[in-house]
């Protein structure tokens, strides 16, 4: 229950951080909030040779609107996301999901970028990024690139980030007019990892027909799981309870929950059907409001 030995460097310049990461690659880990990394180190599941403490990179802590997008720095604390008026206004799905992310003390330290780079399929923030079509900015000594959320999450705890890259910023695009979003999860206790959870993002056209829909699940596979066929069934449909039920049934074929000590895959699938129905219904109600 004590971490293995490692070297530690705290830096306050991004350039210096990237140079060090280029030199050490996978041997070096960034220490941001540390709320997933340090438990893993305490259990000795992770034994990095070098920790690069990036908490001094104050320039990576921001929430602002740029070109109609919500741009959020990777070092922004989860508690800030939970309370920020810009997030509530422009990414209400994120604000709705934040209270489900662990506990208040954890959210005080945990960061947006850290949770995304950790890529735990049971976590809420990767689902937010995938549901809202976020772009993630990866920076290295070689340059920078933006990665679409759908390409970012590769498998269990694995992202598209190269060994010398750092996630520095996340861009959430504007929701279109007449959009509605909803997030629901089911956990045994508040703050526990959810047994199942779903984010729904829908858009209505002028005549009340569903123009676009997106459904993304947590704990339903190795990455945030996008149910494209189920969401596709909603397009061109009035959001009736029978159409929503058909989509919820279809989603069952697209998720691959692995089960755990608290829930069999069959029970997770049952939850997914029920939560899909509720999330879609709420998202459509919000789009109509």
């Amino acid at each position: 229950m004590k971490p293995a030995s490692f070297d530690y460097v705290a830096l306050d310049s991004l350039e210096a951080v990237l140079a060090l990461k280029a030199q050490h690659g996978d041997e070096a880990k960034f220490l941001a909030g540390g709320q997933s990394l340090i438990p893993a180190m305490n259990f000795r599941l992770a034994q990095p040779a070098l920790l690069v403490d990036v908490n001094g990179l104050a320039a990576l802590n921001f929430i602002r609107r740029v070109d109609g997008e919500l741009r959020i720095g990777a070092l922004t604390r989860q508690r800030q996301l939970e309370r920020d008026p810009l997030v509530k206004q422009h990414a209400p799905l994120v604000a709705e999901a934040m209270p489900f992310v662990a506990h208040p003390q954890i959210r005080n330290r945990g960061t947006l970028g850290g949770s995304l780079a950790h890529a735990d399929p049971a976590a809420e923030l990767p689902v937010m990024a995938a549901a809202l079509g976020a772009k993630l900015k990866a920076v290295s000594a070689r340059g920078e690139r933006w990665i679409a959320a759908d390409d970012f999450f590769r498998s269990l705890f694995t992202t598209d980030l190269a060994a010398d890259e750092m996630l520095t910023e996340i861009a959430f695009p504007n929701l279109p007019p007449r959009a509605g979003t909803a997030f629901i999860e089911f956990a045994r206790r508040r703050g526990d990892y959810a047994l199942m959870g779903v984010a729904a993002v829908v858009t209505l056209s002028g005549d009340g027909v569903c123009r676009d829909a997106r459904l993304v699940y947590l704990n339903a596979g190795e990455t945030p799981t996008v149910a494209r066929k189920a969401a596709g069934l909603m397009r061109g449909q009035k959001p009736s309870s029978s159409a929503i039920e058909a989509a919820a049934r279809e989603a069952d074929s697209e998720i691959e929950p692995m089960g755990n000590v608290h829930a069999s895959p069959a029970y997770q699938r049952h939850l997914a059907r029920v939560l899909t129905r509720r999330a879609l219904t709420t998202a459509f109600e919000r789009a109509q409001a």
Binding site: G34, Q35, N42, H103, Q105, N108
Partner: peptide, 23 residues
């Protein structure tokens, strides 16, 4: 010692944090 129980909570610059999840 893995951030679940909350017994080690302290105030870090005035904000509650787990002292077992910090160095």
């Amino acid at each position: 010692e893995h951030g679940v129980c909350g017994a080690c909570t302290i105030l870090y610059d005035g904000v509650p944090a787990r002292s077992c999840l910090m160095f």
